[in-house]
Simulated scan of single mutants.
Amino acid sequence: MSEEVLVEKADGVMVVTINRPDAKNAMNKSAAEAISAAMDDLEADGDVAVGILTGAGGTFCSGMDLKGFLKGESPFVENRGFGGLSQWTPKKPLIAAVDGYALAGGMELALSCDLIVANDKAQFGIPEAKRGLAAAAGGLIKLPRQMPWRIAMELALTGDFISAARAYELGFINRVSDGPSLDAAKELAAKIAANGPLALAASKGVIRDSHTWTDEEMWTKQQQYVAPVFVSEDAREGAAAFAEKRKPEWKGK
């Protein structure tokens, strides 16, 4: 794993930290590849239920590393997109913990996570239009699906930032913290990690994918995700634990 991305695991939660604070955690090729590798680790580790993506030094991610860009680097991973994440998602839940700025590609990384927790001083934006560019790593596609359409249009056309408080009002982020976002993200992750891993993956899958389903196919499509959950050992364990008034012991099968 690159030193530009740090990984820690504890209590069923993996924390992936973009570790380029001197560059405001701007994304370069090696960091993107390291995030992609961390996501593979998240998927493979049966002791980890939830991932958190955050940034070191008080900034989430300021976007693409322009110095790397000028050297011919691309902070994209094949089939996974910007930062190894914008065109792909792991099956397990992933939380963005945002301090400082989540701008341009950094905003698009946050958009690619399932949940967002932010410090109350955090700022979000896709300012590409101010530089004659467009937020092509998912911002233009995902933003109008995650906040009101006209607000997304305004952010894309003006390039202006919004505060964490405004983002929360719009339903774009889950929680605002007056302390480090990572602390609040870990609290949220702990609640998620206490639940059945198969149920988590199926629930995420349906919510993330169902926007493409027609009314005629949505029940059939949903069944493909949830049917294995109901016949799993974990389903029986969850019911037994409830009846016996004890904490369930998940096996992920």
Rank of each mutant, 00 (worst) to 15 (best):
V48Q: 09
A49W: 07
G51C: 07
T54P: 00
A56C: 01
A56T: 00
A56N: 00
G57P: 09
G58F: 13
C61H: 07
M64H: 05
M64E: 14
M64Y: 06
D65P: 04
K67D: 15
K67L: 14
F69N: 08
F69H: 13
F69S: 09
F69V: 14
L70Q: 11
E73I: 07
E73A: 05
S74V: 05
F76S: 12
F76Y: 14
N79G: 11
N79D: 13
G81A: 07
G84K: 08
G84I: 07
G84V: 09
L85I: 14
L85G: 09
L85S: 06
L85Y: 05
L85R: 04
S86A: 09
W88E: 09
W88R: 09
T89Y: 08
P90M: 01
P90D: 09
P93M: 10
I95R: 11
A96W: 10
A96C: 01
A97R: 00
D99Q: 15
D99L: 09
G100F: 11
L103M: 11
G105Y: 12
G106D: 11
G106S: 10
E108L: 14
L109F: 03
L109R: 08
L109H: 01
S112Q: 07
C113Q: 06
D114P: 00
D114H: 11
D114A: 02
K121V: 02
Q123S: 14
Q123V: 10
Q123D: 00
F124M: 03
F124I: 10
G125I: 03
I126F: 05
I126H: 00
E128N: 13
A129W: 11
K130V: 03
G132K: 11
L133E: 15
A134M: 04
A134G: 04
A135L: 10
A135T: 04
A137N: 12
A137L: 08
G138L: 13
L140K: 14
L140F: 05
I141D: 03
K142Y: 12
K142F: 03
P144I: 03
R145M: 15
Q146M: 15
